[in-house]
Simulated scan of single mutants.
Amino acid sequence: MRATLILAALVLAASTLPSSAQTVSRESDITHIRLGQRILVDDGSCPTGQIKQVTGTTLTPQGISTVKQCVPRRGARPN
């Protein structure tokens, strides 16, 4: 019974998370990032058809460290 309640709470929490990443035009526009959060940066630094993704990965004494990588762009580029 207890395991079922915990599983139900996890499913509910996962379903309330935003399904798409936030998009900014410059990496300097990222002021706060949480662990596991993904922010897309549309600054033109990645090859055609890709966009830079910044992900909060680990907690360090200096704050949250990030990983930057180019990922496939989904959908049309906003004008």
Rank of each mutant, 00 (worst) to 15 (best):
M1V: 07
M1S: 02
M1G: 11
M1H: 02
R2F: 07
A3C: 07
T4H: 02
T4G: 12
L5Y: 02
I6V: 15
L7C: 12
A8D: 04
A9W: 07
A9S: 13
A9Y: 01
V11I: 13
L12H: 09
A13K: 05
A14F: 12
T16F: 06
T16K: 02
P18I: 02
S19I: 12
S19M: 12
S20H: 14
S20N: 02
S20Q: 14
A21P: 02
A21L: 01
Q22T: 11
Q22E: 14
T23K: 12
V24G: 02
S25D: 15
S25Q: 09
S25V: 12
D29C: 06
I30Y: 04
I30S: 00
I33L: 05
I33P: 04
L35G: 11
L35P: 06
G36R: 04
G36V: 03
I39F: 07
L40K: 07
V41D: 08
D42H: 04
D42A: 13
G44I: 06
S45W: 05
T48N: 13
G49C: 12
Q50S: 15
Q50L: 13
I51H: 06
K52R: 15
Q53H: 04
T55C: 05
T55A: 03
T55R: 00
T57H: 09
T57Y: 05
L59V: 13
T60M: 14
P61E: 08
P61H: 13
Q62Y: 03
G63Y: 03
I64T: 05
I64K: 01
T66E: 11
V67P: 02
K68Q: 10
Q69T: 14
Q69R: 15
V71K: 00
P72M: 02
R73L: 12
R73H: 08
R73C: 08
R74H: 09
R74V: 12
G75V: 01
G75M: 10
A76N: 14
R77Q: 13
P78H: 11
N79C: 07
